[in-house]
């Protein structure tokens, strides 16, 4: 399959290794990965803040970049939610409504794509360590992704998954919320990090780099030895 890679802007700038990990896993499974270079940002920051006109101009760039794609795969439950769940709302009654719906239909979050589209749960990965998994809210509640990352992690050799009690509780990132209401966001981060530490895991994994940025930010500030990795990075390791 020819897969068009969607790399969210902050993954592009901060975590290129996450995107490369996706490429490695998909290529290892025998698929061709292309990266439409005219993509920029899905438009979620202005969308979430209420500036829908501004969101639409970003979104149009994304829609154009993936117009001819067969399938679009991205390593972020949140940014894929923007495309899959929110573009149809954003463009409702607009001239590009059809294009928005078309892109929504062919866009997939990485773990969901592997399991539900490709039917793969074992990607031949190996990772020695105890990990705990954080469910990003958008992936979990907008896209209904819960079992997919766990099915994939279950087949990683050497990996032990320990569920945290607050796996489904928000990490407190929420985009601009994290700085506008920093104290609340931080309090939520504390609950999340305490829950992670309670498991005794050495690595926290998620399918969303934005949540990991929030979680990692606090773990590093507190000088914790717990590492944070994107699911794709685990699946790419061997």
């Amino acid at each position: 399959m020819r897969i068009s890679l969607f790399v969210p802007c902050f993954v592009d700038q901060l975590y290129p290794n996450v995107a490369w990990s996706v490429v490695r896993v998909l290529e290892r499974l025998g698929h061709e990965v292309v990266f439409p270079e005219s993509q920029s940002c899905c438009g979620q920051p202005p969308f979430n803040s209420g500036y829908w006109d501004d969101a639409r101009s970003s979104a149009r760039v994304t829609m154009k970049a993936f117009r001819d794609a067969e399938v679009v795969v991205g390593p972020s439950g949140s940014c894929v939610t923007m495309i899959k769940a929110f573009y149809p709302d954003l463009f409702k009654g607009e001239t590009d409504e059809l294009a928005a719906r078309e892109l929504a239909a062919k866009a997939h979050e990485f773990s969901s794509f592997l399991v539900n589209v490709l039917g793969v749960t074992d990607v031949g990965a190996k990772f020695d360590g105890k990990v705990t998994f954080h469910d990003g809210c958008h992936g979990l509640r907008e896209l209904g992704i819960k079992s997919e990352p766990r099915a994939l992690l279950a087949n990683v050799k050497g990996l032990e998954l320990i569920e945290m009690c607050e796996a489904e509780t928000c990490c407190g990132f929420g985009g601009t919320f994290a700085v506008k209401y920093a104290t609340i966001s931080t309090a939520m981060d504390e609950v999340k990090c305490a829950s992670i530490l309670e498991t005794g895991a050495d690595t926290v994994v998620s399918n969303d780099s934005s949540c990991l940025m929030q979680i990692r930010g606090m773990l590093e500030k507190e000088k914790s030895s717990v590492r944070s990795l994107h699911l794709a990075e685990i699946l790419a390791s061997r």
């Binding site: 700038q13 990266f35 920093a182 930010g217 500030k221």
Partner: peptide
């Protein structure tokens, strides 16, 4: 960015974006 950095470490930009890396390698 103080409201972030008060409680959380700021991520640093990668030396090269994925865009640039892809361009070079692929």
């Amino acid at each position: 960015l103080r409201s972030w950095t008060d409680s959380r470490k700021l991520p640093t930009l990668a030396p090269q974006s994925f865009h640039e890396q892809w361009k070079k390698q692929r």
